[in-house]
């Protein structure tokens, strides 16, 4: 039994600790956001946050997240209460097939948590582990900048 926090709630999984986290998330935990893309840390489709740090769920052993906080795209926001990044991706129509977006969104969230005003090169560097085949890169970068602006505005008002 492996116990951890998943998107703010307690979670436990009856799987051997060496099973990749991705299989636990998509299997018994029933999530769809983290996606299999390569199984080799080469595309970023499976990216999740472990204690706020982007990690490849395809190779990370489930046992390694014992007691930690795991956040997936499902934990960012909902259609009713979207995360500013999700709102910005919709505003910029930043995506085509969308298969890469779950991973990109969590990496972008980690970036904005440590750098509230990243320039374009910083955003591209943060998203470098992610592949997008549809060519939505520039829209994605614009969306991250838009979300950064929105987040800073929210903080200014708070």
């Amino acid at each position: 039994m492996v116990r951890f926090t998943l998107n703010g709630a307690a979670a436990s999984v009856e799987l051997p600790g060496e099973v990749p986290l991705l299989h636990a998330l998509r299997g018994p935990l029933g999530l769809s956001g983290p996606r299999y893309g390569c199984g080799a840390e080469q595309c970023g489709a499976c990216m999740v946050l472990v204690d706020d740090v982007p990690r490849h769920a395809c190779t990370l052993a489930l046992g390694a997240v014992e007691g930690k906080a795991v956040r997936t795209v499902e934990g960012l926001g909902t259609p009713e209460r979207p995360h500013p990044l999700q709102a910005a991706f919709l505003a910029e129509q930043a995506g085509q097939c969308g298969f890469c977006l779950s991973g990109i969104l969590v990496s972008a969230a980690a970036l904005l948590a440590r750098d509230p005003d990243p320039d374009e090169a910083t955003i591209r560097a943060a998203l470098e582990p992610h592949l997008c085949r549809c060519g939505s890169h520039n829209r994605i970068v614009r969306a991250v900048r838009r979300a950064a602006g929105a987040l800073r505005g929210e903080e200014a008002r708070a």
Partner: peptide
């Protein structure tokens, strides 16, 4: 330029793909 009907599911990680 109507917004894409399928994009919300994709930014919220909903089960939209055959994989899901």
């Amino acid at each position: 330029s109507a917004p894409r009907l399928d994009l919300p599911d994709k930014v919220f990680g909903a089960a939209r793909f055959v994989h899901d």
